[in-house]
Design a protein around this nucleic acid. Sequence first.
DNA 1: CTTTTTATATGAGCATGCTCATTTTTATGT
DNA 2: ACATAAAAATGAGCATGCTCATATAAAAAG
Lengths: 207, 207
Amino acid sequence: MRISEQAKQENRTRILEKAAEIFTVKGFEDTTTRDISLASGLAAGTLFNYFPSKETLAMTMVTEAFDQGREDFLRRCTGKEDLAEELFLFVASGLRRLRPLRPFLGPVLERSLSPFPRKNVCQEGEAARLGHLNAVQKIIGRHGFDEAPDYVAMTMYWSLYLGILAYWANDPSPNQEASQALIDYSIRMFVQVISGAGSDKGEADAG
Amino acid sequence: MRISEQAKQENRTRILEKAAEIFTVKGFEDTTTRDISLASGLAAGTLFNYFPSKETLAMTMVTEAFDQGREDFLRRCTGKEDLAEELFLFVASGLRRLRPLRPFLGPVLERSLSPFPRKNVCQEGEAARLGHLNAVQKIIGRHGFDEAPDYVAMTMYWSLYLGILAYWANDPSPNQEASQALIDYSIRMFVQVISGAGSDKGEADAG
DNA sequence: CTTTTTATATGAGCATGCTCATTTTTATGT
DNA sequence: ACATAAAAATGAGCATGCTCATATAAAAAG
């Protein structure tokens, strides 16, 4: 069978749309790939011609949200914010775009964004993480921290960011205000670290 | 069929031993529950009379390591450490006991310890987290922070701790020295937060 | 218009975590 | 000893993510 480029794009789009719909209603884990295929008018196996895994399919939406969030950020950023303010704006821009995906975000992010070592790393997940961290590094650079933060700082940033996502993903307060304090604290803490606060190592040595 | 209490305990122990062996060689994900059952001299289904899921089976080992780590900590703690030192000792004691499980720890901890919302929460995982956090609270209390840390502080702690575990789980340096810096920084950062450094909220408001 | 080539759709089928009706073994009561 | 009840072992079977040989439709070549 051969299909027009247009039909192919339409299939891909339809899969993403239907998947988002069903994920939202039934959750990520209770939605089967057969559900999605059939709802998209395709056979069970065909879905995997478009996305190599259920995880990648979901992460495609997340990655898109991340990208849009970054664009929003660039548009909203005035350049007059201090480092903490700018990071807050950056994180908030991302969350705003992730908002529609919130009902099924938990299991997806847990699998794909986690820094725990795994066998089959999801490509989209890696890309999302690197893209995000890269943007953070750029922001930091613009604020005059010439020496790039080391692995310690960036590892801590990612840990805190995942914590924010996890908390925010099931923050029951109407507009996720409860998450704001967490974001605020986390960012301020991170800024302190890369500002070199307490940068003498080995104070507590108890190995 | 009815089996002596002794035989039952022996089965349980054998399952745990064999599972650890095979996990270590093949990794968590490449080990099937059938592998474990057969190696333990049991039929495929029998394993699930002893552990409700593969995840719980693995987490049983993790929980045991956590518990032993806590005991070690109490034994090694002199009471003269400052807060950061004591927390460092606590974390190090846990890691020491987790060491044998390192080869297959990644996927297990990712699933079971993650704060991301999921449908089927693993009981052992919840217990491990609460036990750990509880111990941390106690340590903090002993150091004269009467008002218990709020959810923000404890959420941040857990985020940082998971980051430590993830980094440590595949830290290639001979004795995981590279993880020490991360632990050190993370703990010092946490101590700063609960010490009230920058406790005025809402400085960066960009929602 | 026919043939050939190529890209894609298809659904049977596999592996695996887990369930459950059934079978088997032990303990208890007489 | 024997019968009955309780507890645990068993393996067939299910759901589901994913693979792959095959079928099929469009495009290219003749």
